[in-house]
Amino acid sequence: MSSEAEILVRLTVNGAVVARHVPVRRSLADFLRHDLGLTGTHVGCEHGVCGACTIRLDGEIVRSCLLLAAQADGAAVETVEGLTESGEIAALQQAFLARNALQCGFCTPGMLVTAADLLRTTTTPTREEIRGAISANYCRCTGYHAIVDAIETAATSRTGDR
């Protein structure tokens, strides 16, 4: 087998600087999972529809399966692990647990990253707005109601108007 073209990527992942040589066709999702062992980012469809691979790139949520690791060179990436460590999604995680908003858990990292993005930009989202935000994320277990409940709970507990 002829050797495959590689490229050096340097980026920060959850605040830590990493530099690796990777094959140019490696997706950012695979890079996070296989090269860095950050398996919290899940890979469902690998073509942008399921949302399980959602991460933050320079502060904005994106599909990590639709980016090449090479494209993240110089960027700041945050994954569900980073958001967990910083405590940013602690209230969401608590609410997901309390409301049974996960069963198999496959969709959960993507849901949490997406919900955290909504809560950053919208103080008290309506249920309609919550549904709008997570319409980009598939869950094959819960039927979504519990997830909407959990996100609503996290939002309202945060603003203290309950």
């Binding site: 140019v24 073509h47 942008g48 399966c65 980016l67 090449l68 090479a70």
Partner: peptide
């Protein structure tokens, strides 16, 4: 943006030999 091209490549509906990233 890769939001259409990457899926097309992942499904191997297209196989460019050279990828020119304009980002």
């Amino acid at each position: 943006g890769g939001q259409s091209l990457m899926p097309l490549m992942a499904m191997r509906l297209t196989r460019p030999e050279e990828l020119i990233d304009i980002n």
